[in-house]
Design a protein around this nucleic acid. Structure first.
Lengths: 172, 172
DNA sequence: TATTGTTATACTCTATAACTATA
DNA sequence: TATAGTTATAGAGTATAACAATA
């Protein structure tokens, strides 16, 4: 048993209005698990895969740019690349334009691996959305995409008001 | 900047087929952030809120049962309850049926707090789904719910096959 | 002997700070 | 002086193990 059932939650819960947070959490964790399993062979798991696909798709990239683009701490990027390099899927090359920087490039082995990994990941996605038919899946992805685009644009700083009037419940 | 843009990802990406993992992650993290802000006043944040709503809705519960139901480690539950009790929203009472066990009950203050917190949480949900109109929101929640129910039922153990043939990419 | 709950310890992940080599 | 990358260190969060009280 990994999570509580939705009906268990308090408050109003018509079968459709059922807790959004619960559903989101369950689906996200499930996908994360499936993806992690699919990408099990990549050092660093999903994040290692992201690095690999990025350098494969975009071509050579400097370490810091890569870190910024993927929202990974630069210190974490160091460890990640250590492992990926040891696995032989990427390589650190000197940047001819700046002797401080390193250009990260995918090896042939890395490029090959991406194809196989993409297939596995795609299968994992299909698995997670298995309860929807083709049409529903399309609608779901479309709506989710719309929500995500807005969510990605929104800044947590915008919620200053929400935080401001969130006085301590112990004083209510 | 918190996350990479979807078009940045490698592979095939028609605007609708855009990366499911990315969208799920963004929406989930956004919701988690909003919820954490809305539940800022509860010790333990969202998890403290879950404990509070559970004992408010289901009535007194033993600590271990509560931990199992919410998938929280029993050692974590101890700290969580310490904080919630100190805040005055729940109480540990001796279980008349078993002197080892403690029954967790919500205080009046705790019950009051739940109402306010539910309102805030509901507002947060509305905010996250803000890019959808009423009808779309209903469809989205319905589909998400369907996906979640299946995802919740599925066991990671079922993926033994996926893990089995996930040989190391370094040897491909 | 097994179980409830607590405490202490260790482990993982991530972020911070200090360092080097270049610019 | 500032920046790219590395290393060492410290912090949060979580899990493991040992413990006291009771069954």
């Amino acid at each position: 048993m990994t999570s509580s059932s939705p009906e268990r939650r308090g408050g109003a819960a018509t079968s459709v209005e059922a807790d959004l947070g619960w559903a989101l959490g369950v689906v996200f964790r499930r996908y994360a698990k499936e993806a992690a399993a699919a990408l099990d062979s990549v050092p660093g798991g999903p994040r290692g895969y992201q690095v690999l696909t990025t350098v494969t798709g975009d071509g050579p990239k400097r370490q810091l740019d890569l870190a910024a683009q993927l929202s990974v701490d630069r210190t974490v990027m160091t460890y990640l690349l250590d492992d990926l390099e040891e696995a032989g899927v990427v390589q650190r090359q000197p940047d001819p334009a700046d002797r401080r920087a390193r250009l990260i490039v995918a090896t042939d082995q890395g490029k090959e691996a991406v194809c196989e990994l993409e297939r596995r990941l795609s299968a994992a996605e299909h698995e997670v959305l298995g309860s929807l038919d083709e049409g529903e899946r399309l609608i779901f992805r479309m709506l989710l995409q719309r929500v995500a685009v807005r969510a990605d644009a929104a800044d947590p700083v915008d919620d200053a008001c929400a935080l401001a009037d969130a006085d301590d419940i112990t004083k209510t």
